[in-house]
Design a protein around this nucleic acid. Structure first.
Lengths: 353, 353
DNA sequence: TTATATTATGTGAACGAACACATCGGCAAA
DNA sequence: TTTGCCGATGTGTTCGTTCACATAATATAA
């Protein structure tokens, strides 16, 4: 990496023209075996690193990448993801990469399906897909495979696709960790409660289902004798959780800890403060939403488990960039760190990218 | 960020030549007020984003950046940092940025001082400084200020320099967090022990000293009644820790937890396994060294506190890149996340950058 | 042998920005 | 009027790579 050799240097050293060197470097053929040999000999002695700057200036192809994520409000999980897209956009702009964002309703599989045809029309060179709806994603990926458009998966891993790479946490293990963090705060045989947040028509996302699986695995591995109760709660403005929760806790005063596997722990926070059970119940949630941070700081939520959404966004777009522009390939599966946030380290959790 | 306007486009739109536009964009003067007005009017309507690719190709300046870090063995903390440098080097190579690594002995301040003059000779456009020796770093920074060479600080923060930016954790708070993680595993009034790792001539690094301060703060804030014992241990091959530790634990069987504020928790691990006190003592350490991981997995170390050295390296070099090439300035202080690692999430801790 | 494919090789014009240099026009002093 | 000066403006080359195109060399068919 000391001296930067140029194609011109290689040409001079091997006594051919730059065109010939170019053809050899790119395996375009139309080169005699003598020329091939001469250039290869030179290439062995030096470490040629193409100047990517010059390359992408010369290529000046336009790339359009489409991201397919849930829509979001300020401060929510997918808003953080979107911030990562912003950063990537800035960084990749000069490479003639433009990013188009398609959003679906994360509680409505149909809204995802509707976007599939729009992607085909739009015409693009790469897609980033949030894998909330397993079956629909598989439909999309077969389409993309046929169109030969590369794609990256984010959020939860889905097997049997031809994605160029995946970024996201190991959902099962992140549930397992939640189990550990919860159980170390209570006694081995205490009861716990799993809150499930169900909107009408919602079928638990891949992610959420696997987290619960991991959580239960920890529970049974340690032969905990307490029961895991389940409470279905309503989404915002869909029903009265207060009544529901009051009834539950009146009946189940022995429950010492609760957990919710999506990012909506803050929803519970509101009720717990009102019901005044904040001190008697340990609560663990997911993802660093502004609303969740508030309750983590107040102590109502003891831990948040997080997964660096900005980094996921950035990396998945950079992976497509590497694939499209630099002709490099990545590891097929990249499990992201599973971050443990507590009151004391949350202020520093800003995920530099 | 939709259409990419070029200088040529602006020139055509405002009826002047590219040269004039260029002079206006770079405030080089020699432009009539009419031309100025015409171009400014166009610039207001479009959002000109210079093509950085083309710019850096045209500028074809060579930048040399020097990194100043401790030397290291495979798997150690500064080896991780070095991996981040590798990544940055790859990414910045095409911008004609070469990185030269100067290493000092982290237990010998003099070895750092000796490098200072070498930096002046070497001639460079930027420096990354690991701030282990506070006073020596201040000497270096005044020199660099005089030479007008920009620099970035990493590791622990040092006030009153003119660094363009800082990357590292908040040392005090990271000690405070260690306190919380330790105390939640034992009773409020249990005794704990702080291990200090002293090589001859070593004066606790800025980092380590501040961590201990934060730790003690947590202890006293919570009005813990246990005592904080201190044990000085030897470095590798510098003395017999086994004897020393045996003696200590024979006398102090009531000690329930230990902590060490540098990255050498693994050193203790070896002895604890031999002495067979692994189960009775909770131990917390710093940094994700290969050797530390081993003991975290075995359960001997309960938590590791980590600070993304690869990301620190990458970001500090990118900050210099932005400053030198893109003429952008960063936030002056960037506190990195304080990561909490446990047995269950350590496998995923690979710090994507 | 000449004409025609076929393959090998070299040349030169982009890409967008930067900057050195040439040129033009106006003005003032000679 | 001519000369010199200076500010304003445009032109053209450069960066390293890519690629279309022109040319040269060779093989094949008539």
């Amino acid at each position: 990496m000391n001296k930067a050799y140029r194609i011109k240097d290689i040409a001079k050293l091997s006594g051919v023209s730059t065109g010939t060197v170019d053809r050899i470097l790119h395996k375009r053929g139309r080169v005699s075996s003598e020329a091939q040999a001469k250039v290869e000999k030179v290439l062995k002695h030096i470490n040629y690193q193409p100047n990517l700057i010059a390359r992408s200036l010369a290529l000046k192809k336009n790339y359009k990448i489409i991201t397919l994520t849930p829509s979001f409000e300020q401060g929510e999980y997918w808003a953080k993801f979107s911030e990562g897209i912003d950063k990537a956009q800035q960084e990749l702009f000069s490479y003639n990469i433009i990013i188009e964002r398609f959003c679906f309703n994360q509680y409505d599989r149909n809204s995802f399906d509707l976007l599939i045809s729009r992607i085909e029309q739009a015409g693009c060179q790469g897609v980033v897909i949030a894998t909330l709806f397993r079956e629909s994603v598989l439909n999309l990926t077969t389409l993309l495979d046929r169109l030969q458009i590369p794609y990256v998966l984010v959020d939860a891993y889905i097997e049997n696709t031809h994605c160029i790479t995946y970024y996201g946490t190991h959902s099962y293990d992140s549930g397992y960790i939640a189990g550990r963090l919860l159980m170390e705060q209570i006694d081995k045989n205490d009861d716990v409660v799993v809150f499930r947040f169900i909107r009408k028509g919602d079928q638990c996302s891949t992610q959420v289902a696997k987290r619960e699986e991991g959580f239960r695995a920890y529970f049974s591995e340690r032969a905990c004798q307490g029961t895991i109760q389940v409470v279905q709660i309503y989404g915002e403005k869909e029903g009265d959780n207060k009544e529901l929760l009051t009834a539950f806790f009146n009946k189940n005063r022995q429950v010492k800890a609760g957990i919710i596997f999506n990012s909506r722990a803050c929803l519970l926070g509101e009720y717990f403060e009102e019901l005044n059970i904040a001190n008697s119940l340990k609560l663990i949630g997911y993802d660093v939403l502004d609303a969740n941070i508030k309750y983590l700081k107040s102590g109502l939520i003891t831990h948040l488990i997080a997964q660096r959404p900005e980094v996921q966004a950035m990396n998945s777009l950079k992976a497509l960039f590497r694939y499209l522009v630099l002709d490099m390939k990545d590891e097929p599966v990249n499990y992201m760190p599973i971050d443990v946030l507590i009151k004391e380290n949350i202020t520093y959790y800003n995920n530099y990218i």
